[in-house]
Design a protein around this nucleic acid. Structure first.
Length: 295
DNA sequence: CTCGATCCCTGGACGC
DNA sequence: TGCGTCCAGGGATCGA
């Protein structure tokens, strides 16, 4: 599941592999995850991929004007979200297409940039000019670029649960379920704790641990749980360093207490019940929900 | 503002 | 071996 470190890995791979390459033609399969498939078909051919960057969990492929005079002053880009199972990688034209290949961009070097996504939870959109800025300004700060003061203030002025805040892309961009749980465990904060209840020291600890974990995960090319592959088709290595994610019933690396899983903010949340103390009222709430699901 | 529920989608795990 | 069922999860959206 591509989060910030995985998307960063893909962006760096694409920058190395396809920056400078021209898109000669485009072939589409299923298009229900594309904002406007027809615009993609008319706008992409003839443009060169200038630069690839990560923005939160998005990939931004900046494009040349491709001699399209009407837009020669406009910035243009292909926005790609990998969703749960998306992959974007260059492959030789001669190589057979993987199942669930939905977008194929023929490049000028004998390869195709292919988008593969079994579940199609991803998103793709061609954006130009002001639409790029409008799209990007919806999101919060990048956790690796945000200052401590900014991060701390944003978290502590909110009454939502810290797990929900970390997952909310308008709060910080790029964090998903794995890195939220990992950083909360490292900072010894329960996922159901309210943002507003965090002490300044806790917010600082969380900020530091989140950055450290993201940086280490980037260095190891992200986590491959089931099927994540980067732009070169390689899996990441950070899953070997997971301390709580996916470890229900296994012993905490710090105190040996069995790791638990609860639903917070609608997502599986793994935590150590000893290291990460539950907020007041939470245990009662979980019991109630078990007795009366949905109530 | 915050919450839960629902939908999208496929593949993997599991039970029989 | 094969079938049916459940569930995972990022994000949008909607009603409470």
């Amino acid at each position: 599941m591509p989060e910030l470190p995985e998307v960063d890995t893909v962006a760096r791979g694409l920058q190395r592999e396809v920056a400078g390459r021209k898109i000669l033609s485009l072939t589409l399969g299923e298009t229900d995850f594309i904002d406007d498939p027809e615009t993609l078909e008319t706008e992409l051919p003839g443009r060169t991929i200038l630069r690839v960057e990560r923005y939160g969990k998005f990939l931004l492929l900046h494009l040349s004007d491709g001699g399209k005079a009407a837009e020669s002053h406009k910035e243009t880009a292909l926005l790609v979200h990998l969703g749960m199972t998306g992959m974007l990688m260059p492959r030789p034209v001669s190589e057979a297409q993987a199942k669930h290949t939905h977008v194929v961009m023929l490049l000028d070097d004998g390869r195709e940039l292919r988008y593969i996504d079994p579940r199609r939870f991803g998103r793709m959109a061609y954006l130009a000019g002001e639409a790029i800025r409008a799209e990007l300004k919806r999101f919060g700060a990048d956790p690796l670029e945000a200052g401590l003061a900014e991060f701390s203030q944003t978290i502590r002025e909110r009454r939502a649960r810290i797990k929900a805040l970390l997952l909310d892309q308008t709060v910080v961009r790029g964090v998903g379920n794995i890195y939220a749980d990992e950083s909360l465990w490292k900072a010894k904060i329960h996922p159901a704790q309210l943002g507003a209840r965090l002490k300044a020291e806790q917010a600082k600890k969380l900020y530091r641990e989140l950055q450290g974990i993201l940086q280490k995960a980037i260095a190891l090319r992200g986590s491959s749980i089931s099927d994540f592959l980067d732009a070169e088709g390689l899996p990441g290595e950070y899953q070997r360093h997971h301390r709580v994610y996916g470890r229900e019933g296994k012993r905490c690396f710090r105190c040996k207490t069995p790791i638990r899983r609860v639903i917070v903010a609608g997502r599986s949340s793994y935590y150590c019940p000893t290291c990460q103390r539950a907020p007041r009222g939470w245990k009662r709430r979980v019991k109630q929900r078990r007795r009366n699901p949905g109530g």
